[in-house]
């Protein structure tokens, strides 16, 4: 297998209520790099992301077939294998949504939420990891004095970085981002692009984006998804 490969997709098909969305997709996504998936809207780009953390299983009427292999610290695993523990997988493969989706709680509670789910209860450890993740997401300086404020009072760009930080706090090896800048203005989008570029040293990123400019700026490898099939783009 490829030495620098992180994700290998083989013959992946996806169906939603009897409509075939993805047809027999095969692709290799490299490790420690940004892979961009682009293409016209409504062609299943976001869907493709949900096949990587099996989030599609939460959506009634969805079904997927095929193999998705990922190289984790302890070797290659087939994501679609029945013995995969879903919470474990989703901690290894983090996800950021198109629109920032903070919970209606304080900045701190938002950040600590994934840890609470994972059963990390040591207060000191939680505090340290919250700070660390916020620093990684370029947000610590801006929010360190208002950790107890409602997260929804932050600006759009800050909320999105909060969501990235919240995904980072579990130290995922792979981070999936679905149009992470589409709801932001140019300046806030630029900060996020910078952030993503800084993150790829330690993680594998898969970014869905329909902005060609953005894809050119940040991606190491580009795929185009159209009519259900995924093709590499020069």
């Amino acid at each position: 297998m490829n030495a620098d490969a992180k994700i290998i997709i083989e013959n992946l098909s996806f169906f939603y209520r009897r409509r075939q969305v993805l047809t027999d997709i095969s692709a290799v996504f490299p490790a420690a790099a940004i892979t961009a998936v682009t293409g016209p809207s409504g062609q299943g780009k976001s869907t493709l992301l949900t096949t990587l953390n099996r989030l599609w299983e939460e959506i009634p009427g969805a079904a997927a077939t095929g193999i998705v292999r990922m190289q984790f610290e302890d070797g290659w695993r087939d994501v679609n294998a029945p013995d995969i523990d879903l919470p474990w997988l989703r901690r290894r493969v983090g996800m950021v949504f198109q629109a920032p989706n903070p919970l209606p709680a304080s900045v701190y509670k938002n950040m600590a939420f994934p840890l609470r789910i994972a059963g990390v209860s040591n207060k000191r450890e939680v505090e340290a990891r919250v700070e660390d993740a916020l620093r990684q997401a370029f947000l610590w300086r801006e929010v360190k004095d208002r950790l107890d404020h409602d997260a929804r009072t932050l600006s759009g760009g800050q909320q999105q970085r909060l969501c990235i930080a919240r995904a980072l706090i579990l130290e995922p090896e792979i981070l999936l981002l679905d149009e992470p800048t589409s709801s932001l203005d140019a300046e806030a989008g630029r900060v996020i692009e910078e952030l993503l570029t800084s993150l790829k040293e330690s993680r594998t990123l898969v970014v869905v984006s329909h902005y060609q400019e953005q894809v050119k700026r940040i991606a190491d490898r580009v795929f185009r998804l159209e009519k259900g099939s995924l093709q590499p783009q020069a």
Partner: peptide, 13 residues
Amino acid sequence: MDVRLSAPAMGAS
């Protein structure tokens, strides 16, 4: 749907 998916995406059962 996006609210519904946010916690499972973080590893919530």
